[in-house]
């Protein structure tokens, strides 16, 4: 159940994201001031190359920020050790996994690494968490398969299970539905929504499924050429933020349908 008290789990202050190229800094988005409550389902929207992945990578410390601060549970992200961060935040990335013979079970079990001893022995507690993650993502029938035998949709569920097994209050997913058809895209979205509703976890995704996101998530982070706007879905509709998400000649936001539609004359 969602907590009634407003606990801000993730906050940024004047955050600048981008990357350092030799001595030149390339700023992608400037002055980001986000605040995300515990137990919300958040989607980062925006066109290709606008900085969605960079934002998520910066929030999860895969990449360093250029300026400003990120606070996770009121503690500055830069003060987190790798190990401490591993018990606070888990990831599902878009990158391909290197080839190996890992089984689905073993892959999910790797999510328990922050808790296991020096030779990676699984405790009863670890097994419990792994089985719970497998059950939540409905992949019981796949657990003894090798991960390379899975379809994209199945693999995505396995990666979500791995993040769940890591038992963190926040899960960040970079385009979890990138290679999926409509059916599987919807299944992943509803799985994530169910997890937010039942476990009180905070889930942040980046996605191009804008219409689905508007329907299912609680909050949006909209990235456009005008910068970043963060808020509840309805408030972003009301203040016309979504109108400016894409170039208006082709795609338009229809307020009554709460959907993006394509211009007929194109």
């Amino acid at each position: 159940m969602k907590t009634s008290s407003k606990h801000i789990i993730l906050k940024t202050e004047a955050l600048s994201i981008g990357y350092q190229q030799k001595k030149k800094r390339v700023v992608i988005v400037n002055n980001i001031n986000l605040s995300i409550e515990k137990g919300t389902f958040v989607a980062v929207l925006g066109k290709n190359g606008i900085g969605k992945s960079t934002l998520l990578r910066t929030l999860s410390k895969v990449q360093n920020s250029l300026d400003g601060n990120v606070f996770l549970n009121n503690k500055n992200l830069s003060e987190y050790s790798n190990k401490e961060l591993a018990t606070s935040l888990s990831l599902v990335l878009t990158e391909h996994l290197p080839e190996s013979q890992l089984t689905v079970f073993e892959l999910i079990a790797l999510g328990r690494q922050p808790y296991t001893n020096w030779i990676d022995t699984l405790s009863a507690e670890d097994f419990k968490k792994i089985h719970w993650a497998i059950k939540q993502t409905e992949i019981e029938h796949l657990q003894h398969n090798r991960f390379y035998e899975l379809s994209d949709g199945q693999l995505q569920r396995v990666l979500i299970a791995r993040a769940l097994a890591q038992d963190t209050p926040i899960i960040i997913l970079d385009e979890p539905t990138a290679h999926l058809d409509m059916h599987h895209t919807f299944k992943i979205f509803s799985l994530l929504k169910k997890l937010v509703d039942t476990t009180g976890k905070t889930i942040i995704i980046s996605t191009h499924q804008v219409n689905l996101a508007i329907d299912l998530v609680d909050e949006l982070i909209a990235l456009s050429d005008k910068g970043l706007v963060n808020g509840r879905v309805q408030s972003l509709i009301d203040n016309d933020t979504l109108e400016h998400l894409f170039s208006k000649e082709i795609i338009k936001f229809n307020k009554t349908l709460r959907q993006f539609t394509i211009h007929k004359n194109n």
């Binding site: 990831l91 990335l93 990158e95 290197p98 790797l110 999510g111 690494q113």
Partner: peptide
Amino acid sequence: SFLLGENYAKSLG
């Protein structure tokens, strides 16, 4: 953890 690639390894602590 390297079996999942460096970014995942880092996220596992």
